[in-house]
Amino acid sequence: MSAFLTLEGKKALVTSGTRGAGAATVSLFRELGAQVLTTARSRPEGLPEAMFVAADLTTREGCDRLAEAARERLGRVDIVVHMLGGSSAPAGGYQVLSDAEWAKEIDLNLMPAVRLDRELVPAMVALGQGVVIHVTSIQRELPLPASTTAYAAAKAALSTYSKSLSKEVSPNGVRVVRVSPGGIETEGSLRLAERLGAEVGGDIEHGKRVIMESLGGVPIGRFSRPDEVANLIAFLASDRAGSITGVEYVIDGGTVPTA
Rank of each mutant, 00 (worst) to 15 (best):
D64Q: 14
V77E: 02
A50L: 02
G75R: 05
I79N: 01
D56S: 00
E61F: 07
F52P: 06
A55Y: 01
T59K: 08
V77A: 03
L47P: 05
R76A: 10
A50D: 11
L66R: 02
R76C: 08
G46P: 00
C63N: 06
L47W: 04
A54Y: 08
E72P: 02
L74H: 12
R76T: 14
G62M: 13
G46H: 00
A70T: 02
F52G: 01
A50M: 00
E45C: 05
E45V: 04
F52M: 02
M51W: 12
M51A: 15
V77W: 03
L57N: 06
R71H: 15
E49H: 07
L74I: 12
G75L: 05
R71F: 14
D64F: 07
C63W: 01
E45W: 01
D56F: 05
P48D: 09
A69E: 12
P48N: 07
A67I: 05
G62I: 12
G75M: 05
R73H: 11
G62K: 13
P48I: 04
L47D: 03
R65L: 15
R60E: 12
A69D: 08
R73V: 10
M51R: 10
R60N: 10
D78T: 08
R71M: 11
E72K: 08
A67C: 14
E45A: 10
A54L: 08
E45K: 03
G75F: 09
R65K: 15
T58C: 07
A67D: 09
G62V: 13
F52D: 00
E49V: 11
M51Q: 15
E72A: 13
V77N: 03
R73Y: 10
V77G: 06
A54K: 07
G46V: 01
P48Y: 08
E61M: 05
I79P: 01
A70F: 00
T58D: 03
R73Q: 12
D78E: 10
E61Q: 14
G62Y: 11
A69F: 07
F52Y: 12
A67F: 11
R76S: 12
E72H: 10
T59H: 08
P48H: 04
M51V: 11
D78A: 09
L66M: 03
